[in-house]
Write a protein that binds this DNA or RNA. Structure first.
Lengths: 219, 219
DNA sequence: CTCTTTCTGTTGTATATACAACCGATTCGT
DNA sequence: ACGAATCGGTTGTATATACAACAGAAAGAG
């Protein structure tokens, strides 16, 4: 697990905590490291989760398939991001979504209870991690509100513009890379792929944007 | 503010804290009480918020109006529920939504920093409140995911079924009261009111449900 | 390198939704 | 009790989206 200390230090959860302290907290928090191959499930809908999940390497999608195989993508998790905060409370019930590795991935699991139940003074930074976790959840919350804002647009075009603008703001550039291919983007925006593809090309023809694969430039 | 102690004790934020302790914490946390008449704005999009908002009386809607007056309702806040957790982090930016009183309402404001920065041992229950807050945010998070699940359905009928089923689960009954009239429900589900009205009546004619005003019974 | 699979864009058709206008019923204020 | 305003349901039309089927391009496997 040692090899991921630099990655962990860059996460929101361990922001402000030094390398040695992170290392000692891995024990203190009962961290477990798992690796997943591309396409493997990290978590499945219906399971119960009492851990905070931190992605150290790779990329995950949070998604859900219904009876007819229609897929809906809730979001994407990049390196350093966390998942599972929504299930931190003791009686939070079963997972509402699958979590799947879209690349080979390395994932840390931390027992929530051991995070929020501050231990003896052995871990100097424990309090800071608790606060970090709180801020992270708070931020996730805002992210979900923004996704709702995007999804609740009436037309495919509006959804695309909202999503891409938001990404541009996050990535602080008019040229952005998105973590989805066309089908995945459609599943994320809850629209039909071919209709979306159509709309994207129309927007390109109107000079609103350019793209190649999952790389977009807003004009 | 004293008169609302019983209400505050029933909130998630103060769960497990006794009446006297709640009272003393009102001072400790720098609580402020405001009242709003039906239709008044409690918070406006673009403002900055550094408080956790607790509704002691009445009912609030979290919503957003775009340039053309199209309204989108993110959610409803009932007595005892909280708002503002998403803006708890120091650099969380401006409010993304308006918060409006749909009835005459009484609202407590608590400075977030004073909640999460545990004070001297004077407040015995401070630690518990911090944990309560964390759980509340976590739960909000799950609520948002469920709303996303609902909104991302493709058809109006699916949205209605998802929303009403979810409410039935929450209210633990097949007969439910929703905090919206037709227009508000449409704004919540991001669909056209008349189309939704149509669909509701069709579903009623098919025997799926019954309703009168904002009271529904699922069959 | 070649074959296979996945990905993306294109087209046409069926369907669902948005939009607008209207009306009766209910609620509200005075 | 009265008029005004709000609310909910209905209808018709225009439009956008879903769905299906296909083809060329790109990526991946052997």
């Amino acid at each position: 697990m040692k090899e991921f200390i630099p990655e962990l230090m860059r996460t929101k959860l361990f922001a402000g905590v030094g390398g040695e302290d992170v290392l000692s907290m891995l024990t203190c928090l009962g961290a477990r490291l798992h690796t997943y191959k591309k396409g493997e499930y990290v978590l499945r809908q219906g399971e119960h989760l009492s851990d905070i999940v931190v992605l150290a390497e790779g990329s995950l999608h949070i998604q859900k398939d219904d009876y007819w195989g229609n897929r809906s993508i809730l979001g994407s998790i990049g390196v350093g991001e966390i998942f599972g905060e929504a299930y931190a409370a003791p009686e939070s019930g079963a997972l509402l979504n699958d979590v799947i590795a879209v690349e080979n991935s390395s994932v840390f699991f931390f027992d929530v209870k051991r995070i929020i139940t501050t231990c003896s003074s052995a871990c100097r930074f424990h309090t800071m991690v608790v606060q970090n976790l709180f801020y992270a959840v708070s931020e996730k919350n805002r992210g979900l509100v923004q996704k709702l804002d995007c999804i609740s647009r009436r037309t495919t075009r509006e959804k695309l513009i909202t999503y891409l603008s938001e990404e541009a703001k996050k990535q602080k550039s008019a040229e952005i890379t998105i973590p989805f291919n066309r089908q995945q983007l459609a599943d994320y925006l809850s629209v039909d792929r071919s209709a979306m593809s159509n709309e994207l090309c129309r927007m390109r023809d109107e000079g609103l944007l350019e793209f190649q694969k999952n790389r977009f430039r807003l004009c």
